[in-house]
């Protein structure tokens, strides 16, 4: 009896250890929930908030536009917001929601969107 409960307990403990504290989300899912609102479902800048922005959201599908930016710039723009790269403050800083690893995945995801 005792042995069984010990085994059950240690399995429960292991389970707890394996569950990560914050679950890293897939870049696609982060992009949907956080970026669609301005950059749009196609990534081309047609989000439902776009009309309220004094600067148009970057067209993430445009290779010519996106090629102008280095990965480091893109990373900083997402993490610290537009103001950190001398762009519009309507591009918010995402570091309170996305981890550095999630932002790195996001940079890769943007390369897929612009095919560049």
């Amino acid at each position: 009896m005792k042995k069984v409960s010990l085994i059950v307990l240690s399995i429960m403990f292991l389970g707890l250890m394996i569950t990560p504290l914050a679950i890293a989300e897939k870049a696609e899912d982060n992009y949907k929930l956080y970026c669609f609102q301005c950059h749009g479902s196609k990534g081309s800048g047609g989000g439902i908030n776009a009309a309220a922005l004094s600067t148009a959201p970057r067209d993430h599908t445009s290779a010519t536009e996106m090629k102008k930016l280095s990965d480091k710039d893109i990373f900083t723009a997402i993490k610290e917001g537009g103001a950190a790269v001398s762009k519009s403050t309507f591009m918010p800083p995402w570091k309170s929601i996305l981890t550095d690893d999630e932002i790195k995945d996001m940079v890769k995801h943007l390369h897929k969107l612009c095919n560049c």
């Binding site: 929930l33 479902s41 047609g46």
Partner: peptide, 11 residues
């Protein structure tokens, strides 16, 4: 996100 009609140009 659950209530937008996703358009080619605009949602």
């Amino acid at each position: 996100l659950n209530n937008i009609k996703m358009g080619d140009k605009k949602d």
